[in-house]
Design a protein around this nucleic acid. Structure first.
Lengths: 220, 220
DNA sequence: ACTTGCCTAACTAACGTTCGTTCGGTTAGC
DNA sequence: GCTAACCGAACGAACGTTAGTTAGGCAAGT
């Protein structure tokens, strides 16, 4: 195996509901694995077909084009990600601190549970044209706005101290994104431990320490 | 323009020293822009040639293969990244807090100054085989170890409180990586402001707040 | 009971295009 | 007249996709 793999995970995991028995499910799962490992552009329709145990032409009985397969994967991935964080936040109390913890735990949990879906959804999304990507873009924006609203409420209520809410959201979101690339079940920490650790990181990042330094950023 | 771009930057910037006058420099710069925007696999040699104002065959007068162009970009990118953080850390004082601030400022600075180089170096590196990628992998590991050593020293000296140094390094590194994708000179915050903000985030992340909660992570 | 017709899902074969790359020749400056 | 840079043309392979075909299951008509 090459020193450098795109992600540590080795088994493609689709959402339970998506594991439809038929050929369409097997194609989707094969595409997920290959797109995650090699990238969309570096994967041929013939590769996907071979991995799904099917001939290339059969792919087109299930999806109108290669790009539609990617669009479906991106949509499913972002849908689950948004559903997951939204549910977690709603189930937590009303306090911004609790909500951020819930959000980050769910966010990281998604990236450890479905690393391939996360990698494809995030690093191949740019391939999709405006039309095929539209559904995914909406979900992406909703997820971001959800965290942003929590952070803003926390600032207004005095629980958080950050100069620029957007920058904090970018930082917290960015660190969570990368988890999908290195996490594997063989890692020394469990998925729960990583999620809890990152939730604590997010809390610390948002709330100034005892020295009260508030991270205003430098001058231009 | 499509809603979804892979990165916000629009002008390819190679290191000053790399802007060698000749055709080889123009090819490298054209490849950098296209690889960053569309990805390595989605960019053809003909695309690079056209962007460099040259015919496809001429590419092979400068580089033995398409993959060698990518290898050169990855090497240059990681070299500058490592050089940058290393210089900054050495110029800072001996205190882990100062060193982390210097590291993160330089790290983020690299991602705002050379966003295309950062994007290509980090998200196309997996394409390179063991041989062509070897030089880059070494630099990557050195950068990570540098931050890791600072964090460990900070923990030993009592300046930082984190349960798992590696996890903190992954989190700080991950949030910095993403900057290259969204930053542009048109952003409301300057590069310096973003770098300072992230440095403050890193400090907060590493040092527990006044409540003393230490972020040990959950149990398995 | 048995043919007929249709549907689904898979197949074989091939379309035209584009890919990375090579080779032999042509130009331009010293 | 030499060297370095560049180009036109082409190679075989692989690309996404399409057309037409085959096999099996199942319900309706006789």
């Amino acid at each position: 195996m090459s020193i450098n793999r795109r992600l540590a995970a080795t088994t493609a995991r689709l959402l339970p509901g998506q594991k439809q028995s038929g050929g369409s499910g097997r194609v989707l799962e094969a595409a997920l694995k290959l797109f995650a490992e090699r990238g969309y552009a570096a994967t041929s329709v013939r590769d996907v077909a071979a991995a799904a145990g099917v001939k290339p032409a059969t792919i087109y009985a299930h999806y109108p084009s290669k790009e539609h397969i990617l669009a479906e994967l991106c949509r499913v991935g972002h849908e689950e990600q948004y559903r997951s964080v939204r549910t977690a936040v709603l189930a937590s109390g009303g306090a911004p601190r609790d909500q951020i913890v819930a959000y980050v735990r769910a966010h990281v949990g998604f990236h450890t549970t479905y690393p391939m879906l996360a990698v494809v959804s995030n690093s191949e999304l740019h391939v999709l044209g405006d039309e095929l990507g539209a559904a995914t873009f909406v979900l992406r924006r909703q997820s971001e706005e959800l965290m942003q609203d929590i952070v803003k409420r926390g600032i207004d209520g005095g629980a958080f101290q950050v100069a620029d809410p957007w920058l904090a959201v970018a930082a917290i979101g960015g660190m969570g994104l990368r988890v999908a690339y290195w996490f594997s079940p063989a890692y020394k920490l469990s998925a729960k431990q990583v999620a809890d650790g990152y939730a604590e990181f997010a809390l610390r990042l948002l709330a100034a320490g005892s020295d009260g330094k508030a991270g205003k950023g430098g001058s231009r």
